[in-house]
Simulated scan of single mutants.
Amino acid sequence: HPNTVRYRLKRVSDVIGWDATGPREALILQTALILGSIGTDAARRRPSPHRRPHA
């Protein structure tokens, strides 16, 4: 819902300290979210050094 998106963007702006709706800031925020999700996906796929592989 559009109001939910506006509310969440306002909350993000409050937390990070800049306007998440500005074009430059929105691009930076989107890039950070993408890079963060790539890092999370890679960490999930990487085997833990403490676990043994299944035989």
Rank of each mutant, 00 (worst) to 15 (best):
L35G: 09
V5D: 09
A26F: 02
L33A: 15
H1D: 15
I34A: 15
S37T: 14
L33Y: 06
A32F: 03
A32Q: 05
P49K: 05
V5M: 12
I16W: 02
V15C: 05
R52G: 08
R46E: 08
R6M: 12
K10S: 11
V5W: 00
A26M: 05
A20Q: 01
H54Q: 11
L29V: 10
R45P: 00
S13P: 03
R44N: 12
N3A: 12
K10W: 11
T21H: 01
L27P: 00
R24L: 15
Y7F: 10
I34H: 06
A20G: 04
Q30I: 07
R45V: 04
H1Y: 04
G17M: 04
A55M: 03
R6S: 14
T40K: 13
G39S: 10
H1S: 10
A43W: 04
G17P: 00
Y7C: 14
K10H: 13
R44Q: 11
S37Y: 08
D14L: 09
S37V: 11
P53M: 08
L9I: 07
E25K: 04
I38S: 07
L29K: 00
G39D: 06
R45N: 14
P49Q: 08
W18D: 13
G36S: 02
S48V: 08
N3H: 07
V5T: 12
H54I: 09
D19S: 07
P47D: 04
Q30K: 12
P23D: 11
H50I: 14
L35T: 01
G17Q: 04
V5E: 06
R8Q: 15
W18L: 06
L35Q: 12
L9D: 01
A26I: 00
A32V: 06
R8D: 07
A55L: 14
R6H: 08
I28Q: 09
P49V: 08
Y7P: 00
G17W: 03
I38W: 01
K10D: 12
A43Y: 03
P23S: 09
T40L: 15
R6Y: 08
G39Y: 02
I34S: 08
S37R: 06
R51E: 06
R52K: 11
R24A: 15
I38R: 06
L33S: 03
R51N: 09
I38N: 02
D14C: 06
I28K: 04
R6G: 10
S13L: 00
P53N: 07
L33G: 11
T31W: 00
R46S: 06
I34Y: 10
T31D: 03
Y7E: 11
L27T: 15
H50P: 02
P23V: 09
K10G: 15
I16L: 06
R6W: 06
P53E: 09
N3S: 07
L9Q: 10
P2N: 09
